[in-house]
Design a protein around this nucleic acid. Structure first.
Lengths: 172, 172
DNA sequence: ACCAATGTATATCGAAACGATATAGAACGC
DNA sequence: GCGTTCTATATCGTTTCGATATACATTGGT
């Protein structure tokens, strides 16, 4: 999970820990804690997927190794099965350019199906709550409605991505 | 965190594990795993914040104890400091009715301040990315823009809550 | 009436991630 | 020159996760 993201970032260029943390946050999906980051780096180092390059001073820059590249490629191309996390999808998306066009659509469509299911159940929950005899706490209703709307906006966003994907593949 | 949510749910009525899981998901904020849930129940039991009521068959219903009520109240009223998690806020909100009106506004305003800061940095990131010479990967840009829009919609939602809070306190 | 599939329910394991905190050099302000 | 903030790595204990095992209950088809 975190390993996947780290490898992806290191594929572009060597980075040291703190920089990985910053990049992760800038990609808009994660403010990872030090308690996750440094153990992850050691994990990857142990598997020799990464190696410490130029230990200039106290900053340890890490670079991805050959094995690391292979590992990353297999993670990226892996079947985005039903149990894919939100975060896993985001990471996959951030590196989606590295996948051939037809596979990209598959990843997006697959995600759409999953989120559509989430929307269905979120809607049912809201409808149920609104029509309940003893109508629920207003804060909770707000919570449920907001959750529903967030999913709706996720779907709209995904549809935009899918549409632009189709446009690109037609031009090409 | 999870303990907080469990206590809140058990304050209303005794529930067994599976039901807590379902309620948590319905409140729109969490599909907690069994690997979190059952350890959490045992944790709370050990602290005697909850106790097993009527062990009818294989379902163990848990009820909150006096100590548990105290614990919950202190968690709910605790200072929503800067490090408050998204989830912690959501849980707090789900049980906000149990807090006096003036404290409710404080919780909401505090949250707004925090999310506003998030929005600021998200906007900076998007602006920076868009104006960058080597403009970033389109998928990443989409990711960043979506993150930004999500935060914008969170703020709008919070403002709605704050406004309705004011309306209520004026009528009262 | 039988049995397969699905739903309800509790439990546990190892791994991953979290939040807090410690430490310390570097850069900056005044 | 001295305090504050920023950069950077590290570790500790706890929480949460995801996968998996198990078993009874309910429902639907034939």
């Amino acid at each position: 999970m975190l390993d996947f993201a780290i490898l992806g970032l290191l594929m572009e260029r060597p980075r040291h820990g703190y920089e990985i943390k910053r990049s992760l946050a800038q990609l808009g999906f994660w403010t990872v804690s030090f308690g996750s980051l440094y153990p992850a780096l050691r994990r990857l180092d142990k598997r020799s997927a990464i190696e410490a390059a130029e230990g200039t001073g106290r900053r340890k820059a890490y670079a991805v190794t050959g094995g690391g590249r292979e590992l990353f490629a297999s993670l990226l191309a892996a079947d985005p099965d039903a149990s894919e996390t939100d975060r896993a999808f985001q990471i996959r998306l951030a590196f989606l350019s590295q996948l051939p066009q037809n596979e990209r659509s598959r990843v997006l469509e697959h995600r759409r199906t999953k989120v559509a299911a989430q929307l269905k159940s979120a809607r049912e929950i809201v409808i149920e709550a609104r029509s309940s005899t003893q109508q629920p706490d207003r804060y909770r209703l707000a919570l449920m409605e907001h959750a529903m709307r967030s999913i709706e906006s996720d779907i709209a966003w995904l549809d935009g991505l899918i549409a632009s994907e189709r446009r690109v593949s037609q031009t090409a």
